[in-house]
């Protein structure tokens, strides 16, 4: 097991440096003069231009610029936003809990519903329910979620008036950020009704963000379950006279969960990409919206290192999933 983890860690380091190379290259690929682009004006005063080049370190040879960049990263210096003059790391850490809360809620929604639908579809193979689940999940898989979000807003917020249109909480409430998770913070504060309000804000974005993972998980659970239910040990368990529920959940689902867990892990990248769209639609103050706004404002340090942070997050989660997979399935661990 130790060797397995070490091998995976060994793969992690070149990937990390590769990503830094990528984010480093991104900002140098800006067509035209970077200073003019960043300042948003043409014919910058030559003296100011030179100062800006100096400040951004753009006057040195490329390899030196890269080593500077890595050196700063190693010291935890991710630069500061051109707009707000606060450090990128601080902005990231204040906004990240909002994205995390949204993603966890989405995964909870997708995971529970997807597992239940997948298991029932597998048990009732070929039935109307099975065809329905498969059809809906194919549609969910093809869903442009930015449109799905607008549709839900139109139906639930505009027509029925059940849920608010945007944001995390009503402006009436003043919730001190303790954990950064609005659901927990509202419980900690003694504002009445704040928790319910936060929940109402969370529901629609979580459904929108969870739609594609839901479709993937339902399909995956169904096919994994079908596979497992054909196994000899399931027949043996049935023949032993175990209750159907025990056969399905203990002998079946537990083994079917292994591939489903991997899919869960793989969805993290998709979730973060979906968060960009979902947060834009619902004005959810997370890192997705932050990134898009920074792109609009040509705030290149934020774009560069925001992307770096997200990539690192995805790499780390995939690493953890790999390890968990190795734990669950010894055959993977001993490969190669």
């Amino acid at each position: 097991m130790f060797a397995f983890i070490a091998r995976r860690l060994g793969l992690l380091i070149p990937t990390f440096f590769g990503v830094t190379l990528l984010t480093f290259a991104l900002i140098r690929m800006i067509p035209g003069d970077p200073v003019e682009v960043m300042m948003g004006e043409r014919r910058v005063d030559p003296e100011m231009h030179a100062q800006a080049m100096e400040r951004l370190g753009l006057n040195k040879p490329l390899y030196a610029q890269y080593f500077d960049y890595i050196g700063k990263l190693a010291q935890g210096d991710l630069g500061e936003s051109l707009r707000t003059r606060t450090s990128v790391w601080d902005e990231f850490t204040t906004l990240f809990p909002a994205t995390l809360e949204l993603s966890l809620a989405a995964l909870l929604f997708a995971g529970t519903l997807g597992l239940i639908a997948g298991v029932i579809a597998a048990l009732k193979r070929g039935s109307l329910f099975d065809h329905g689940v498969m059809g809906i999940s194919l549609a969910g898989y093809s869903m442009p979620i930015f449109w799905w979000g607008l549709l839900l807003i139109m139906f639930f917020s505009v027509w029925l008036g059940w849920t608010p249109v945007s944001g995390r909480i009503d402006l009436l409430y003043d919730i001190p950020p303790v954990t950064g998770f609005m659901l927990i913070d509202t419980l900690l504060s003694d504002e009445e009704g704040a928790f319910v309000d936060a929940l109402r804000h969370l529901i629609l974005p979580a459904i929108v963000l969870g739609t594609i993972p839901l479709a993937v998980i339902a399909r995956m659970t169904r096919s994994a379950m079908l596979e497992v239910l054909r196994e000899d040990y399931v027949r043996t368990a049935r023949a032993k006279g175990l209750s159907p529920a025990r056969v399905v959940f203990v002998h079946g689902l537990r083994n079917a969960l292994i591939p489903v867990l991997t899919v869960f892990g793989l969805q993290v990248g998709a979730l973060l990409a979906g968060a960009v769209l979902t947060e834009t639609i619902f004005s959810w103050p997370g890192i997705g919206k932050w990134l898009i706004e920074s792109i609009g404002a040509r705030d290149y340090p934020v774009v560069q290192n925001g992307i770096l942070l997200i990539a690192c997050l995805v790499i780390l989660v995939n690493f953890v999933v790999d390890i968990l997979y190795g734990l669950a399935n010894p055959r993977i661990r001993h490969q190669r």
């Binding site: 990503v19 990528l22 690929m29 800006i30 990248g269």
Partner: peptide, 24 residues
Amino acid sequence: MRLMDIMLALPSLLLAVAIVAILG
């Protein structure tokens, strides 16, 4: 393959957003 792994580390839409953000 390592290079491809690096590109896969970023969610596809995000990488596309980044590229368009830089190129316009």
